[in-house]
Amino acid sequence: MSRIHDMGGRFGDGAVTPDFGQEPVFKEEWHGRALALTLASGFLGQWTLDEGRHMRESLSPNDYMRFSYYEKWLAGLANLLVEKGVVSRDELENGSTNTAAEALLARVIKAEDVPARLSKGGPTERDVGPKALFAVGDLVKTHPAGNTTVPGGHTRLPIYAGGKTGQIVAIHGNHVFPDTNAHQAGEAPEPLYTVAFKANELWKHPDGPKDLVMLDLWQSYLAPL
């Protein structure tokens, strides 16, 4: 099974429209508001980065394609707020409530804390987890893509790179595994590698014969060759 967001290598999307640095950061006022609302809600700590991504990916293909970028964010946010019980569907539909979210009030981010919280970030490297099975220079083969680790799927192995042979070019330590973390199934950190694929391994008619495509892939996605 695939999802609509996994579009690397797809045909038919037309030309890219560069802005050459001229576009404002937020083209519409509501774009900035949607981003800020999503970040501020995220600081309530009710979902992980991976759950947030997965919720956007889980929009119906019809919604995913018709929504603009920040509309996807808004839809993902609304769905998360309801799924996590932060707001009820009735509250969302009515657009108002008389009930404060008492249990979460201590987590609300204040304006003066914004610089510190954004600067702090959320590193995903962990000092636990399995040892690296591969070394720089090793050849590996990716598993077939298709959201197979967890039912319902979330994976960072794109379809275009499934079942392909590549070479390890960097080891980044153990990182939180998105496939489980998106489903509240634990961080399950494991070794993360940069894997180089020859373009002619991925595509029958590559743009340039010597070109490479580099992906960051978790150990679970890889098998020795």
Partner: peptide, 15 residues
């Protein structure tokens, strides 16, 4: 956006 922001402000979750 406005609807979501209004609701979350009412719930005390967003400043």
């Amino acid at each position: 956006v406005k609807a979501l922001e209004t609701l979350l402000v009412q719930k005390g979750l967003i400043d």
